[in-house]
Amino acid sequence: MDRSQIRNMLLQTFEDFQMTRSERSALNQIFSHVSLTDHNLSLIRNEAFQIFREHKPAGVPDGQALSWLEDLIKILANTNTKEAALSSEALFSPHDDCSHRICRLISSARKKFDICVFTITDDRITEAILGAHARQVQIRIITDNDKSFDLGSDIERLERSGIPVRTDQTEYHMHHKFALFDSEYVLTGSYNWTRSASLNNSENLVITNDPQLLVRFESEFEKLWNGFVV
């Protein structure tokens, strides 16, 4: 099953933003006769996230369209095939474990990653982001407007390089710290992307490929991205 076949099949079930019983049954039948390797599972998830981003009408509540995405993830998880092993890890600061792991994830990104963080002042992470941008990885950044003007903030530098950036313009703070890599891994935790977090603070960082968490964080990113107009 190639990418175009997968996309067409998923688009047919996305027309009304929810899966009927017959559609779920049909997908179960199809997937039960296909060798779902780790690569194929990743391909299907990528196409599903892409359809969710591109085809959800602005007037449709996120929760309504999200139910389609969650149904698909459940079908993949329940199919009697070779399922990608669940993988999670936790890291802590101070010390450089967190920052080095973020840089390695950025450097290993193949197609795209989305960043949603309060602030970025760690030049090592910024250089890794710019390196990914140079090799034409698609990147989007959401951050807080107040922190983007702080001394040492790298947001303006990243935006000048051509990376799309959107900021929270409200009186409150966009205080998230998470990132999504190739629709395969989500990174989250208290860890701020700053040198002080690496050198001094007690922080945590969690990385997982749990598909249900990926769905939730992907939805949150898209909601914020569409809400923070340029």
Rank of each mutant, 00 (worst) to 15 (best):
S22E: 14
D154V: 00
L105W: 04
E159W: 07
I139G: 02
N201G: 02
R45V: 10
L66F: 07
H100N: 13
I129C: 06
F92G: 00
H173Q: 11
F181P: 08
I6H: 11
V229L: 02
N28L: 10
S183T: 06
H95W: 10
G227M: 05
G162K: 03
M1F: 14
H133M: 00
A197T: 07
N46W: 10
I51Q: 02
L66M: 13
T208E: 08
Q169F: 01
P94C: 12
R135D: 02
L76F: 08
S4R: 10
T119P: 00
H100Q: 14
D150Y: 06
E220R: 04
N8I: 07
R166Q: 06
H175V: 07
G162L: 14
K111H: 13
H100R: 15
S99H: 10
L224E: 04
T13N: 15
G189H: 12
F118R: 00
S32H: 05
L180A: 12
K177P: 11
K112G: 14
L86E: 04
T37M: 03
D210E: 07
E184F: 08
L199Y: 04
E83C: 15
L91M: 09
E127S: 11
S148A: 03
D96P: 08
L27G: 02
F14V: 14
T188K: 08
T188H: 10
H39G: 14
I141V: 15
R101C: 10
W68S: 05
K111G: 08
D123N: 06
S153G: 07
D154K: 09
L199I: 01
L187C: 01
N201M: 12
E83S: 15
R124C: 01
G59W: 00
S42Y: 02
V60C: 11
W225D: 06
H173L: 03
G152Y: 12
S183C: 01
F52R: 08
A58I: 12
R53T: 01
R195P: 05
S42D: 05
T119V: 15
F181A: 08
A84T: 04
S183P: 11
F113P: 14
H175I: 04
T126F: 03
V229I: 04
D168N: 02
Q18T: 09
W193P: 06
H55L: 08
Q64I: 15
E156D: 15
Q18R: 10
V215C: 02
Q5V: 13
F17M: 10
N80E: 06
